[in-house]
Write a protein that binds this DNA or RNA. Structure first.
Lengths: 120, 120
DNA sequence: CACATATTCAACCAATCGGTTGACGATCTT
DNA sequence: AAGATCGTCAACCGATTGGTTGAATATGTG
């Protein structure tokens, strides 16, 4: 699997995208990442391993807790690839937050990270 | 499946990314798309249907031939999503072409579209 | 009409995916 | 030492994926 394969495949799952959005706010332990989701801890652990394999997050174990940290640079290759197809103008952060809000408002998205209004 | 799921899932396959890169050059018939690949025509037809379902290409049937056309706007939502994670500076087309060249130079990519030097 | 060309359909296959459960190895706390 | 907490491993499951082949359906051409 090429790095680009891994990146896009990792991003194709809505649970994993939700996790990345959660990690935008702050670094988190595996258990804390799992807390808002209904699925098992083992399932979330697997998702995190996939994200780490794709380089989208890093995981550092301190004591018995493993901290997960967003690694936005890994998105760069994919971003370069995509921008080649349409000369997209860069997007400001307000657009992005609006986008996140809309995505998490949908019914079929597994588990909003903090979608109870307190967007920050 | 949300539109974002479909977009990223479609991009996760190197054959499909190669097809998109081919369509950057020009619109193509299904048979012509399949020509440089070693896999069957039916397999390519399926890939094209997946790309069309994700909105990344459109397919118009004129006579007995179905023309495939790149639809770069469909990448916009995904691009917005990604850029939110890292304030990526926009990338120029030269970077992109270099990137394509590198991707298609790798051994594990199924079938380069026109990687025999004549990039035009 | 007969034939070739373009594309999809249908059935099948092995491999991967996203999830579960239960057991397990570390690590902290008492 | 005993017990709780953190996270992963292993085995399993049903659904999906990416490919194959062969037949079927249009559409064009001699």
């Amino acid at each position: 699997m090429t790095p680009l394969d891994a990146t896009f495949a990792a991003l194709a799952d809505p649970t994993r995208r939700a996790i990345l959005a959660m990690l935008l706010e702050d670094d988190m332990a595996v258990t804390d990442v799992a807390q808002p989701f209904t699925m098992s801890l083992a399932a979330i652990s697997k998702h995190l391993i996939i994200l780490a394999a794709a380089g989208l997050i890093s995981q550092e174990k301190r004591g018995r807790v493993k901290w997960c940290k967003l690694e936005p640079d890994a998105l760069k290759a994919a971003s370069v690839w995509m921008q080649g197809f349409g000369q997209f103008e860069p997007v400001n952060l307000d657009d992005f937050e609006r986008f996140l809000a809309r995505e998490f408002a949908e019914d079929d998205v597994p588990q909003p990270p903090g979608s109870r209004g307190e967007v920050r």
